[in-house]
Amino acid sequence: MLKIGIIPNEDKDEGLKYTRILMDSIRKWGGTALVCDDVASKTGDKELNINEDKMVDMSDVMVCLGGDGTFLKAARTIVAKRKPLLGVNLGKLGFLADVDKNDIEKAAKHLVEGEFTIDERMMLDTAIVRDGKVVAEDIVLNDVVISRGAISRILHLKTYINDAFMDLYPGDGLIISTPTGSTAYSLSAGGPLVEPDVDLIISTPICPHLLYSRSFITTADRVIKVVVAESSHHEAMVTVDGQNGYEVRGGDIIITKKSQVRMPMVRFNEKNFFDVLRGKIYDRGESMK
């Protein structure tokens, strides 16, 4: 019997309405629905004396309910445990959490009956080096964003690929993204759309003060090194997947490379990447009129 762990975003799932639907649907089709005790007490479910970490350990597959931010938070929590993750979209866009809230019962049936595939997504490791020492490390599914801080001044970022100087980007910052993250902030900044099952690293400048500046795509075996110019006396920020933020200053080095860890994501065969693009981006303007 497939054990399915559930991580809801209670801010988006008011009263845990859709969490209850998911739990009932999993049990209807013969699976086991698992939630941590905090959620169980609110849904009236039997408490098993487990926290979220233990619930993940007990599960074969994980489902999160919310938006893409919820998916990223859940993915970063469970990636080390190698549990496949499916997202139910309770937000507006939802590239990662791509199951519609109205399709929960159908998705539960597919899960319990094994009618799904596992899509292994490339991730990145990023580290911040200051005075020769690593002061922060993180793992990335979508993107690493290096941006100016609270003071609105141009940020100068010296960018290298495998220690070969690529360019000096003056502007609001730089986005280093995976193919999965190509549909997120990088796209809004003018970056390319990349199929998520390839291994590439995308560097996209944010509002560059250069006429010729464009995104740069390189193979996943390269190492991207970004140096905050020594003349930058104001602080900047490194934001990872929109979840964690780190302050950086002049002379700090941000090193990003392909991770040895990959994120297993549950995918149903009904939609391919291009179907999702048409539904989420190209047709979005019409649906919002």
Score class of each variant (00 low, 15 high):
residue 182 S to D: 01
residue 171 G to E: 12
residue 89 N to P: 07
residue 47 E to K: 15
residue 133 K to F: 13
residue 178 T to Y: 00
residue 289 K to H: 10
residue 6 I to W: 09
residue 82 R to E: 09
residue 217 I to V: 15
residue 197 D to I: 05
residue 165 F to P: 14
residue 30 G to F: 11
residue 1 M to T: 02
residue 49 N to W: 01
residue 225 K to Q: 14
residue 223 V to N: 04
residue 100 D to T: 00
residue 22 L to E: 04
residue 246 Y to W: 15
residue 50 I to P: 01
residue 137 E to F: 01
residue 232 S to G: 08
residue 57 D to N: 02
residue 182 S to W: 05
residue 231 S to A: 09
residue 136 A to M: 13
residue 174 L to D: 11
residue 13 D to Q: 01
residue 33 A to R: 02
residue 199 D to V: 04
residue 252 D to N: 14
residue 122 M to E: 03
residue 112 V to T: 08
residue 239 T to S: 13
residue 173 G to A: 10
residue 13 D to F: 00
residue 60 D to T: 10
residue 273 F to G: 05
residue 73 K to I: 11
residue 220 A to T: 11
residue 275 D to H: 02
residue 270 E to S: 10
residue 81 K to Y: 05
residue 178 T to C: 03
residue 276 V to T: 15
residue 221 D to F: 13
residue 205 P to I: 10
residue 58 M to W: 05
residue 106 K to S: 12
residue 59 S to E: 06
residue 208 P to V: 14
residue 49 N to I: 03
residue 181 G to I: 00
residue 276 V to Q: 12
residue 173 G to C: 10
residue 93 L to Q: 00
residue 66 G to R: 05
residue 209 H to A: 08
residue 84 P to Y: 00
residue 278 R to Y: 03
residue 252 D to E: 14
residue 167 D to P: 03
residue 245 G to W: 10
residue 171 G to K: 11
residue 194 V to R: 04
residue 220 A to F: 11
residue 245 G to I: 13
residue 210 L to T: 11
residue 158 K to I: 09
residue 239 T to R: 12
residue 39 V to I: 13
residue 163 D to G: 07
residue 172 D to V: 11
residue 257 K to Y: 14
residue 278 R to E: 10
residue 108 A to T: 09
residue 79 V to W: 10
residue 140 V to Y: 08
residue 233 H to E: 14
residue 67 G to E: 01
residue 129 V to H: 00
residue 283 D to C: 06
residue 166 M to V: 05
residue 242 G to S: 05
residue 141 L to W: 04
residue 140 V to T: 14
residue 32 T to Q: 03
residue 197 D to K: 06
residue 241 D to K: 02
residue 131 D to E: 11
residue 6 I to A: 09
residue 22 L to P: 03
residue 240 V to F: 07
residue 256 T to G: 07
residue 239 T to A: 12
residue 249 R to L: 10
residue 123 M to Y: 00
residue 147 S to M: 15
residue 283 D to E: 10
residue 124 L to A: 09
residue 111 L to W: 08
residue 26 I to R: 07
residue 12 K to F: 08
residue 229 A to R: 08
residue 64 C to V: 02
residue 214 R to T: 01
residue 258 K to R: 15
residue 233 H to V: 15
residue 15 G to I: 02
residue 155 L to P: 08
residue 24 D to F: 00
residue 40 A to R: 07
residue 268 F to V: 13
residue 193 L to I: 15
residue 65 L to Q: 03
residue 261 V to M: 06
residue 96 L to G: 07
residue 187 L to S: 11
residue 77 T to P: 07
residue 3 K to Y: 01
residue 68 D to Y: 02
residue 187 L to C: 01
residue 229 A to T: 05
residue 153 R to K: 12
residue 253 I to P: 00
residue 18 Y to D: 06
residue 148 R to S: 03
residue 24 D to W: 00
residue 121 R to I: 03
residue 4 I to N: 11
residue 64 C to E: 00
residue 236 A to C: 05
residue 263 M to I: 04
residue 283 D to L: 12
residue 267 R to F: 05
residue 43 T to I: 15
residue 126 T to S: 05
residue 217 I to Q: 14
residue 142 N to H: 02
residue 181 G to F: 06
